[in-house]
Design a protein around this nucleic acid. Structure first.
Lengths: 250, 250
DNA sequence: TTAATAGTGTCTATGAGACAGTATCAA
DNA sequence: TTGATACTGTCTCATAGACACTATTAA
């Protein structure tokens, strides 16, 4: 009979329960917009180690380490830093997937987080357990691959969540490095949504929502310079009261 | 990170990994609307069994059973049926909570689902591991309690999710038994949102959204009979293009 | 001056909110 | 006939979408 509220110091017992436990992992869906396309970060599964799905591409992730990870979010942050070097991007829980069949090693459950980050902030970290790390476009590259485990389904769910939230939140701002211009932001919205938006209504919506502050920085990569903006609160997205196209079928 | 063993055919080994695994549980946040109030189903933790939080109220849930549960959803359905007898209510994943501290027995992660059901469908099942099961109003009863584990935080998150979705989806329809009338449905919206809605705009919104079919059944519990409706698709909610009160701070 | 991109103004349509009015029932 | 509830119509206002317009730069 375990006593309350005491975390044991020292080495954990070899067996933690008298019944079998599922494996517990954390996986990450890391998005960016690069070359006018939505891209996702994947890592290659190692070869020759006896691990399942050798040489196949997979979402970055791995086992929860009971000794170092305080909680699931801390575990996600740790893995994020290991792969990208980025410390505090926009990070949100997507959900969890668990079943007897998804991993040949046995019953496993994964807690999935999705992250948004500017491509230029990322410093791809190669080596380690994963042989390789790279960006893949969601619409082209990944369509022609089969990811390891149930990661195809997880990615699909992440893209769906991202798309639907982009319809009524300021999420895309986290995909851009600061400061950014309104036309740049609009392009990101259009890339994720896969359709064009009206310039005028886009500007009013963004500026009225009050989540942007002028960076009093002008930035022109070609002709007339545009106003630069920064996000007021880098931690949370703003929710708009309407979706983008209220008229007719989404 | 230690290497993992491959799954063997035959009886499962007593130890499934050479590194410690977190406990894996599934918890349920079961909502209904009863007596013009949003209510949640809680179970009382057992006493004298050495389990943590004896006699405290908690969300129904428990360990994933690797041998009987095919996946997390199946596990959630099993527990749902055990407590309420209801087989297929509206069921959606809320998220997962995991940390070293939430359960005194050790690192644990719980996968939380939330369910919506008509109160009249529920047959409270007492006994078993949980001594007691009952409905509690979210706004009054639960405010004065302290739930076991981190269930206060989980419930708060579930209520928040429910409220925000009620602003722009047809979710409340799943809290009512069929057929129901539009005034009944409006009352449910108002109870969950905690504010009154305009009758006229409510009716147009609901009927235009096309998720209701006339039950050609008239139901009058007092005066002029109202049209009865049923939900077209009992599995999914409809998303409205706008929130209820677009003008000013929600 | 031209090309290119940034940004604004003007019109229309939609639909929510407000609220008054009508319809249909029980007693 | 009265009261209660179901339901409809009418007005206003906010704002998204469409699209033409002006502004500011580089070459």
């Amino acid at each position: 009979m375990p006593s309350r509220k005491t975390k044991s110091i020292g080495p954990p017992p070899p067996v933690r329960a008298v019944f079998p436990l599922p494996f517990t992992t954390v996986d990450l869906v890391i998005f960016t917009v690069l070359d006018d396309a939505l891209q996702v970060l994947l890592t290659k599964r190692p070869d020759g180690t006896g691990e399942p799905f050798p040489n196949q591409w997979a979402l970055p992730g791995g086992y929860v380490d009971v000794d170092t990870d305080k909680d699931l979010l801390a575990c996600a942050r740790r893995k994020l830093k290991e792969k990208t070097g980025v410390l505090s991007p926009y990070l949100e829980q997507l959900g969890s997937w668990g079943s007897a069949a998804r991993d040949p090693r046995g019953w496993s459950a994964t807690h999935v987080y999705f992250a948004l980050m500017p491509a230029r902030d990322v410093n791809l970290v190669k080596g380690g357990n994963a042989a390789d790390v790279a960006w893949f476009t969601v619409l082209e590259d990944v369509r022609q691959m089969h990811l390891a485990f149930d990661h195809d389904a997880i990615l699909e769910s992440a893209v769906e969540r991202l798309r639907s939230k982009v319809e009524y939140t300021s999420l895309p701002a986290f995909l851009l490095g600061e400061p950014f211009t309104l036309p740049q932001l609009q392009r990101v919205y259009e890339v994720v949504l896969g359709r064009a938006l009206d310039k005028s209504s886009f500007r009013t919506r963004m500026l009225d929502a009050g989540f942007l502050k002028e960076s009093d920085f002008i930035e022109g990569h070609s002709n007339r310079p545009a106003m630069g903006y920064r996000v007021v609160d880098r931690k949370a997205a703003v929710v708009f009261p309407r979706t983008f196209k209220s008229r007719e079928g989404e």
